[in-house]
Structure formats: C-alpha cells, structure tokens
Design a protein around this nucleic acid. Structure first.
Length: 569
RNA sequence: GUGCCCGUAGCUCAGUUGGAUAGAGUGCAGGUUUCCGAAACCUGAGGUCAUGGGUUCGAUUCCCAUCGGGCAUACCA
C-alpha cells in the first residue's frame, strides 16, 4: 500500500539527509517514528507526513527539515510539496491506475497482506449460560466476534472460534427447578413462581420455558427429578442457541463444555499445579490464590470451604487448556461487567508459568435498548427482548451492521424503532444500495434494452467479450480517461488495504463499517456526476474497470461483516 | 470509598504514538431527475471538544482535580 511505500522512501531520505549533515544536530533516526496520514484538506495532496516531531532532535525549524528531506528524496513517481512542517504527496495517474489493476487481478484477495506473521488465534466470544434464549447484548458479541474472526482470517491469521458453555454451575439446578414449575403448570397444577423477590431470584420465570415443558411431556413421563429436568432444559436451550447463531451467520469451530472440563480432570489438575506453585494458602477453611502478587487488587478464593470449586477455578483450567492446545494468542470478548475478572485470570496464567500477554480481553460495553425514545435497561432476565425477536423485526443484515458499527468501548444504544423503519436512516441500506447500483450498471452494459411501449430493442452497449476484456486487460493507457474524475474514489479503494491492516491490529470491526459507508458515499457521489455507459467507448471501458473494482472491494468488506452484498434490492 | 469505561454539533458517533481551518451520518433549511436505480446527489446553518488547572513551540488527544453517566467491587456463575 502506498502509505508504506511513502514511509519507506521518506525514512531512506532522512537517513541520507543525516549522512549529508542536512538535519542539524540529528544523528540517528528510529524507523517507525513518523506516520503517513491523509491530509485534512485534500488540496494539500493525497498523503502527508508531519516531520515537526524531528525538530526537537534536529534543533532546526520544521520547514527546513521538510525541505532537507525532500531534497534527498530524488526523483519519484509522485509529486511532493512542503507546507510548514508537512511534506505532502500527490500520486501520479500511473500509481492510481495500479490500484485498479491490482484489484482486478487479486479480486476477492485484494486487501490481504502478502507477508505477515500469521498467528494461531483462539477467539472466544458469546459464551452464554445455556439457561435461556440470547438477549440483545449477546447479539453484539456474536456479531462483533464473528466479524472480528472474519477480519483476522482475511488478514492472514489462523483463527479458531470457540464458545464456552457455562453448563456446570448452580444456575443449571435453577433452570431445572424452573422447568419443574412449568411442567406442573402443563399438567394442570395450580402453581407459579414465588412472588417474593428474593425467592424469585432462584428461578427463571421467563415464558420461554413453557414450550420446553410441553416438548418435555411429549417425550417423557412426568418427573420431579431436577437432574433430569435440568439436563433436558440445558440441551434444549443449547440447541436453541446454536440454531440462532447459525442463522445469524455466526459459526463456532467448537462448543466447549464447562462440565466436560470438570469431568476430564483438568480442573483438578490445574488446581494441583497452582498448589505446587506455592501460590495457594488456606484461610477461613477455603483455599485462596495469591492473585494480588500479580497485580490483582485482592486474593481470590479458588476452593470454597465446602470443598467445591469456584467459577474461577474452572476458568483458570479452561485458559490453561487453550494455551496447552498450542494457540499463540487468546482473544476473549467479554462484557464490561466482567472487567474485574481480567487481572485474576492473567494472574493465574502467569503463576502457572505461561505468558499472560498472550491473553487479550476485549471488554465490550453493554447494549441499551431504546424503545419509543426511552432507554430500557437490559436486565438479564427482565424486559427481555430476545436477539431472535430483533432479527425477525429488523433483519439479519441490519442487525449485524448495527451491532458492529460502534466502537466496543461505547455503550450501544439500539433504537428499535429506528432499526425497524430501517430505510433512509439506516446506513446498511446505503451501502447495499451502492452495491446493487453497481450491479445494475454492469447488467445494463451487456443487456439489450427493450422499450416497453414501442417494442424496439436497443443493442447492449458492450458484448460479453468486450466486457470481460475491459475488466481483465487493464493498463494505464486503458484507464487514463477515467482517472481525472475518479481520483477520490480510487484513493478510497486504495485505503482498503491500510484499513484492513489497522483494523486487524487494533481488533476493531467498526472501522470496517465506517469504511464501507465512506466507499459507498464516494461511489454515490461519483455516480451522480459521471456516467459509466456513454458514447465515448474508451471512457466507458475504463469506467467499467473502475466500477467493477468498486463492486469487488465493497463485496470484500461486506463479506468480513457477513452482511449481504445484494445484486438487486 | 476504590478500580475500569465514557463525556465532542439538537440526536447517534469518528477523530490514527500531541500538529494544517475539530469531521461524518441523522435531523433542520434550500436546491438537483427528457439519460446507467432520487433507497441517491449538491449547498447551507449548527461547536466554550463536560468544567478548572498543569506539561508543551503547540492539547479534543498526555497529567491532576472537580462534575455527570455506565459497569464492577461474592466462598454467584
């Protein structure tokens, strides 16, 4: 990508300038200390670099530094100009053409970096309790996690997606007790969940267990055995969750059961290892882990006074297991309500002799539901608007896009009315419309036109063969005519590569959403003042190559988000 | 109380190791269609970057304090 090329050139020139004693007191330069950026005002150029930061070391004014560097740059394809401490770059038409050539050659691989250090990554997300249907908050992790997985894969990493099923704790008994009440209700018994708020907390009073009870009775004899009921409800909810994930285009390579983890002996084994490391001690009849020695604000209980394990014990074993499976990097997406949990898990990893920096936890702020302009707090069990309800109302594409379009650091306000009306106010349609429009142009190019009133046929502007030729044999001569009116558009297409790199490195998917909106905007703007199908054959051919490139890049970006790129709308 | 996240246009949000006139969408006002999809485009108004200090040639960005919002502070999971 041109950012890297320009930076290389500039850094070489700086080293040359230092050697020639043109940079005052400056004696050395560390690569990577400058950044190529886009000028705020495009009149300055296509790219720019600010060299003011070198002034302190060189002890001469920024403009002089900039000029000295430019002098050492030599003849290049692009033009340079100096304004204050900035060196501005203007790409040549040949360089712009090369962007299109590259896209048309690489197609669905355009944007993938050539040489990166591929990491073996395990990405864990959603990891919900199998005690009920997903709510909207789970939808955010599902959409963002799957998009992040797609992004990291596209970038070249080896990504394994995993869902940790919390199927071992007391909440499972609670689920069974709740199902028992629903079963009894089905059998005509006059019984309900306790009114008392404290007691009610021991149940899941949501109506979603009613169909579960019905199905249970179809397949089983009535029972009051909580274990049987728990197992049934748990499996049932797991299947409900799995089906919805697939429908939502979220694919996990493995569903890892906490119960299996316990049964495998791995939890006991990691407890043993912790004990051997000397980081456990007894207090008040319980076993404590000295996590405060590793930056946690206090020590944590690892085995309760009654001899049972805490949730943390299993989670330590789980993370150690991930490391033992040979992953270079563990990325977890957790809700912000679990943020206090990060230091203790890292502490345990370190205490057991692993590198805690291999674990990256992306903490996501929660989702607020906005109904009729009022925020509805997402309680875990009350006010439940399920993810499925949401998808049914606003569609998969819109839901995925909305969930991904904000930085994970900010609380997401999901305005259900806005998402439902979902037309002009919805950015996903704006982007999809751009893709459909491109496809429409491409169709019109090779289809003859029929006048419905007169029955007359106008021949297609291009034959299939001419079309194939226009998008496969492209060089500067062929593209030249399209360049002057398409400069901004081509620069945006070029930006796809640097966007992919920075998004992958910073683990953000909202930047991909922003990019597709920008690209769609550039295209719509271009479309309004330039025609693709026109009388000038050379111009038409070159614009066909341009428009086909846009379609390719839009598709590549939307594929990462797992949002459809429709041919028609 | 303590820790983490946040506070930028009416609203929802960007702002890349500190740097050019703080940007986009939406909303509002106005304009654009004999021609490839007007679900689009163009123009305009709209800002004490929460507040007050500090560091710096330069702060929306870094530091401190205050105010406001969210989350967490279990031998629950």
């Amino acid at each position: 990508m041109y950012k890297n090329l320009l930076l290389d050139d500039i850094e070489t020139a700086i080293l040359q300038a230092i050697e020639n004693k043109k940079l005052g007191n400056m004696e050395e330069y560390t690569k990577g200390s400058l950044v190529i950026e886009k000028p705020k005002n495009s009149d300055f150029g296509d790219f720019a670099v600010n060299v003011s930061s070198l002034a302190r070391q060189a002890r001469i004014a920024p403009p002089m530094i900039a000029n000295a560097i430019v002098e050492c740059l030599g003849d290049k394809e692009y033009e340079t100009s100096v304004v204050g401490g900035f060196i501005n770059f203007k790409l040549s038409e040949k360089m712009l053409t090369d962007v299109i050539v590259e896209i048309l050659n690489k197609k669905e691989n355009y944007g993938k970096p050539e040489n990166i250090e591929a990491e073996k990554i395990i990405l864990e997300y959603v990891s919900a309790n199998p005690t009920g249907p997903f709510h909207i908050g789970h939808g955010r992790w599902a959409a963002m996690g799957s998009a992040l997985a797609n992004l990291l894969k596209f970038y070249g990493h080896d990504v394994f997606q995993e869902f940790y099923i919390n199927d071992a704790g007391s909440q499972i008994q609670k689920l069974g007790r709740s199902l028992l009440i629903r079963v009894k209700q089905e059998l005509g018994e006059n019984i309900d969940f306790p009114e008392d708020e404290q007691e009610r907390k021991n149940y899941y009073p949501g109506e979603y267990l009613i169909p579960v009870a019905k199905d249970f009775l179809k397949e089983n004899q009535p029972t009051e055995d909580i274990q049987v009921l728990s197992d049934y409800a748990k499996k049932y909810m797991e299947n409900v969750q799995k089906e919805l994930l697939e429908k939502f285009r979220v694919h996990f390579d493995k569903f890892y059961s906490e119960l299996d983890l316990h049964n495998s002996g791995k939890v006991d084994a990691s407890y043993q290892k912790l004990q051997e490391s000397g980081k456990l001690y007894e207090k008040d009849g319980a076993m404590w882990f000295k996590s405060s020695e590793y930056g946690d604000d206090q020590d944590r209980v690892i085995k309760k006074a009654d001899g049972s394990n805490t949730y943390l014990t299993a989670d330590i074993a789980y993370h150690i297991d991930k490391l033992d499976r040979g992953f270079d990097r563990l990325i977890n997406i957790w809700g912000a309500d679990h943020h206090g949990y990060v230091p203790r898990v890292k502490a345990s990893i370190e205490a057991l002799g692993y590198d805690p920096n291999k674990l990256e936890v992306l903490l996501g702020q929660l989702v607020n539901l906005v109904i009729n302009g009022n925020e509805v707090r997402m309680g875990k069990r009350k006010n439940m608007v399920t993810l499925e309800d949401l998808i049914d109302e606003v569609g998969i594409d819109a839901t995925r896009f909305w969930m991904c379009m904000r930085n994970i650091d900010t609380t997401l306000d999901f305005d259900i009315e806005l998402a439902k009306t979902a037309s002009d106010e919805n950015p996903v349609f704006y982007v999809q419309y751009a893709h459909a429009r491109v496809c429409s142009i491409l169709r019109n190019l090779v289809n003859e036109k029929l006048n419905t009133e007169t029955g007359e046929k106008t021949p297609a502007p291009m034959t299939e063969e001419e079309f194939e030729n226009a998008i496969s044999n492209v060089d500067y001569e062929a593209m030249k005519k399209a360049i002057p009116t398409a400069k901004k558009l081509i620069l945006k297409l070029e930006e796809f590569k640097s966007m992919i790199e920075s998004s992958a490195k910073s683990r953000t998917v909202y930047t991909v959403c922003r990019y597709v909106q920008d690209l769609a905007g550039e295209f719509h703007s271009f479309y309004n003042s330039n025609r693709v199908i026109c009388d000038d054959n050379d111009l038409m051919k070159s614009r066909v190559a341009l428009v086909y490139s846009i379609k390719t890049v839009l598709k590549n970006a939307l594929d990462i988000l797992a949002v459809n790129a429709p041919e028609r709308m």
